[in-house]
């Protein structure tokens, strides 16, 4: 059952992921944005399969919600015409990149993963869930976050602050 769910979500995620990068509908970034949202959603489903409920929720809320809204906002703001979007061009570099990525990198990664096939991960749909029943809950992650990872967490907040300031400075015409 879980395996079936996994495959459904995985295939959906991969297909929509392909639509993000190489949209069959056209060059307009809006298509890509929508495909990305879908990918994020399917990934959230995969997170659920992995008992990462908190992350799954965040994925929907923050990623699909906030960040993607920002993207669509910008897409709308720029309102690119066909000329401005322009045509895709295939250069030697890109071809080399394609070959290397598909043959070299994928082969390498796949080889690693197959070579290191490890014990299957048991899912919560059946018995034998994680030893810690609270695994992946807000409480669990929250405790970790505010105890072990307090400093990185605070640093992240500074990062976000800086990002906000930076975004404002950059995007504004005149300060």
């Amino acid at each position: 059952m879980a395996l079936i769910l996994f495959f459904v979500f995985a295939i959906a995620a991969v297909l929509s992921g392909i639509c993000v990068a190489f949209s069959p509908f056209g060059n307009n970034p809006v298509y890509s944005a929508i495909a990305l949202i879908m990918t994020l959603f399917f990934l959230a489903c995969e997170f659920v399969l992995l008992h990462a409920t908190f992350i799954a929720v965040l994925q929907i809320l923050v990623y699909a919600g906030a960040i993607m809204v920002l993207f669509t906002f910008v897409i709308m703001l720029l309102n690119l015409s066909k000329e401005e979007i322009g045509e895709e061009r295939l250069t030697l570099t890109k071809v080399v990149g394609l070959v290397v990525v598909l043959i070299g990198l994928t082969y390498q990664i796949g080889r690693v993963i197959w070579a290191h096939k490890v014990a299957p991960v048991t899912l919560h749909l059946t018995d034998g869930g994680p030893s810690n029943p609270a695994f992946g809950t807000i409480q669990d992650v929250g405790v970790k976050l505010f105890q072990d990872f307090l400093v990185p967490f605070e640093v992240t907040s500074i990062l976000l602050l800086v990002a906000i300031v930076g975004a404002v400075v950059l995007a504004k015409r005149k300060i």
């Binding site: 991969v14 992921g17 392909i18 990068a21 992995l50 990149g97 796949g110 991960v121 048991t122 899912l123």
Partner: peptide
């Protein structure tokens, strides 16, 4: 059928990553 081998997830991740990189 209820167990999913870990490398399935990893392969999915690798595929998405590769797609992203190609993009």
């Amino acid at each position: 059928i209820n167990t999913i081998p870990i490398h399935y997830f990893l392969l999915l991740s690798a595929m998405l990553f590769t797609i992203g990189m190609l993009g």
